[in-house]
Design a protein around this nucleic acid. Structure first.
Lengths: 209, 209
DNA sequence: CATACTATTGATCGAGCGATCAATACGCGA
DNA sequence: TCGCGTATTGATCGCTCGATCAATAGTATG
């Protein structure tokens, strides 16, 4: 029987290795949340020694912030793309609410909720959270402004309304982590609430099925 | 110069000591959140050896869950008392929303947000969170039912509406930890949204100032 | 006053964390 | 093909965590 030899080293281009490490970290965050992002966990997942992680990512705090940003950025891009396929501002807004609340993104909700707590002791993450919240809000403001422009919404405060709706959605998702609830009900109620805040015609944010 | 003698032991009645430890733990949670609740931190705060904490609280997970429950229970009691002073169901509901969103309970919001994240690795806390969420929801349902009974609200779904409003409020509070916002705006918008969901007359949940 | 009970102490264990670093060996350019 | 640069390894440090436990000393009881 052969003793387990020291690991065969495979030497890769720095950029390639860095990407692998980031991929491994991202996968862990998706599956187990940001709290599971430890030096050794990432090393195991990437199949390298722990020291190599530190070589490419001198600070774990920064890595956590980076992974968080990448994940949320991708989510925003996806949601934006889904919204863009709808014909009207009202339909776009409705699609965003539905996509965020349909329960299909639980892994991201875990990341999101953990980010609030971890931010308190990770300044880099705190900054990233603030940044990505602004990006989210901007997406909602854009659609809201379009709705105001074409007359389907009526509010002078799209910015404040966007923040409000965003907070509400986040809370409902966080709640869904603890208590299983029917997504359809949450979507329907959130849509009605959004209609009120946006000054949209009642029912105009209900999903056409 | 005298060497620092071993600590003078003060022996107290078990019930008294247990209460002191719980008080120390509660104070830490209020000031620094549930994440700061460590064996040694509680021992320092209570002025006793670390081993004594373990003597009275064999599991830190349980202590965290207990402290969480106590804090939330007290908050619910306070909010309930404030609501009870209002004359009508609509005024009571409005008072609850205002109290929860006026930004004066940031320490509890930190506890609340951390509880979601820590629950994922602390089953006792997870159970406590579910339990207290139900208590919160029950308070809202009670007021909502009273409103339906006296005709000021019109919805067949007070239970679902209560869950929804609770989630929304939690999300807005969590958001306020990261982004400073005007509480008055959040309260006004949340009230309008709640009117829609409860089937209340527009403006009936606005605060009488 | 003597004794037994137990509240209390503080050292200790094992685990996990981020970070550091000397040693090693891979692979490209000369 | 050789040698150098550096990617990579894995041991190690210092720290904090929850938990455990033998030793100690208050206090009540007889």
């Amino acid at each position: 029987m052969s003793t387990t030899d020291p690991r065969v080293r495979t030497r890769k281009a720095p950029a390639e290795r860095a990407a692998e490490i980031l991929d491994a970290a991202t996968a862990i965050a998706r599956e187990q949340g940001l709290g599971a992002l430890t030096l050794r966990a990432v090393a195991d997942r990437a199949g390298v020694a722990s020291g190599l992680i530190a070589h490419y990512q001198p600070s774990m705090d920064d890595l956590v912030a980076r992974v968080y940003s990448d994940l949320v950025e991708e989510e925003i891009r996806e949601v934006r793309a889904l919204a863009a396929r709808e014909a009207s501002p009202a339909a776009r807004f409705a699609r965003v609410l539905e996509t965020l609340l349909d329960g299909s993104r639980e892994d991201l909700t875990v990341v999101w909720v953990e980010s609030w707590a971890i931010s308190r002791r990770n300044p880099a993450l705190a900054a990233a959270v603030r940044r990505q919240m602004s990006v989210w809000q901007l997406l909602l403001v854009e659609i809201a402004d379009e709705g105001v422009a074409d007359g389907s919404f009526a509010t002078a405060e799209t910015s404040a309304v966007a923040w409000q709706i965003m907070g509400m959605v986040d809370g409902l998702n966080a709640q869904s982590l603890v208590r299983e609830a029917d997504p359809a009900t949450a979507i329907a109620q959130m849509s009605r609430a959004a209609e009120t805040l946006l000054g949209a015609r009642p029912g105009s944010l209900a999903l056409a099925r």
